[in-house]
Amino acid sequence: MTQLKTFSLMTRSVRISGEVMNIFANMPHLVDVHLSQISALDRLPESHKFPQSLRSFKLSACAIKEDPMPVLEKLECLVVLRLDGYKGQTMSCSAQGFPRLQNSKLLGFSNTAEWKIKAGAMPKLSHLRFFRFPKMKKLPKGLLHLPSLNHVELIDTPLSSVGDDNTLKKLRQKGCEVTTYSLGPSLTLLS
């Protein structure tokens, strides 16, 4: 499968380890990886074990135990990132991380309260979606350093007091469209 460009795997309640994901190291032409319905993933393999041509990575797991950002941010061609199920309390992106990322959707981060973003990270990110971050009390200040960010969506992410979040206010002042939604019995637009 050394010429494979797209890899998609959907499993039911299967726990996989980062070592199992090392199969990607032998698929240098992969540009799109989609893994879904994984029951648990302790950690991702090291970034050099991913195909360096990877442009889209989508991972949905019931529990991702270790912060995936330090691994994924080193994939220099990554443009689209969708992560579902990280269970850690904090995550971080270093300066120079995610140099080409444009679109990111982060879902079901049920324990994550803080996201540290260093200046210089994600310089091309234009669209960011948070979905179900119940413990996040305020937006990361590092979002203010993202020059291309023009749209942020907060869905079922009840920031402690949305109107008082300085980062949110400053993003809007910079011209970034910020929308918040609450999903309950029916979809409600909050702002």
Rank of each mutant, 00 (worst) to 15 (best):
100 R>K: 12
40 A>E: 14
46 E>C: 12
138 K>P: 07
115 W>A: 00
126 S>R: 13
119 A>D: 12
67 D>R: 02
119 A>S: 15
161 S>V: 12
135 K>S: 06
127 H>E: 12
24 F>V: 03
184 G>M: 08
21 M>Y: 00
21 M>R: 03
162 V>P: 14
157 T>S: 05
51 P>F: 01
19 E>L: 09
172 R>A: 14
177 E>C: 15
172 R>L: 08
54 L>S: 04
73 E>I: 05
102 Q>S: 10
7 F>V: 06
123 P>V: 10
70 P>I: 00
151 H>T: 09
10 M>T: 04
94 S>M: 04
133 F>R: 02
187 L>A: 15
126 S>M: 05
68 P>F: 01
153 E>V: 04
38 I>S: 03
37 Q>M: 15
116 K>C: 06
74 K>M: 10
49 K>Q: 10
170 K>G: 10
171 L>E: 01
144 L>P: 06
90 T>I: 11
86 Y>L: 01
74 K>E: 06
60 S>W: 09
119 A>E: 13
187 L>C: 13
166 N>K: 14
29 H>A: 14
2 T>I: 11
80 V>K: 10
44 L>G: 01
186 S>K: 12
24 F>H: 04
118 K>M: 13
45 P>A: 03
35 L>I: 01
23 I>T: 02
108 G>V: 07
167 T>K: 06
140 P>H: 04
30 L>P: 03
116 K>I: 03
135 K>I: 09
148 S>E: 14
29 H>N: 09
60 S>R: 13
35 L>D: 02
129 R>E: 13
165 D>I: 05
162 V>E: 13
71 V>Y: 02
154 L>D: 04
153 E>F: 09
69 M>K: 05
71 V>N: 00
20 V>H: 13
118 K>T: 13
174 K>C: 00
93 C>Y: 05
9 L>D: 03
11 T>S: 11
70 P>R: 03
96 Q>S: 12
30 L>A: 02
174 K>A: 11
3 Q>V: 11
19 E>F: 13
52 Q>R: 08
152 V>T: 03
27 M>E: 05
5 K>Q: 12
24 F>K: 00
60 S>M: 12
102 Q>N: 12
116 K>S: 06
133 F>L: 02
106 L>A: 07
128 L>N: 03
159 L>H: 06
122 M>I: 08
134 P>L: 11
94 S>H: 08
16 I>C: 01
54 L>K: 00
124 K>D: 07
85 G>K: 00
180 T>V: 15
110 S>Y: 14
2 T>M: 13
44 L>N: 00
176 C>R: 04
157 T>M: 03
60 S>G: 13
97 G>W: 00
70 P>M: 01
6 T>S: 15
156 D>W: 02
133 F>Y: 08
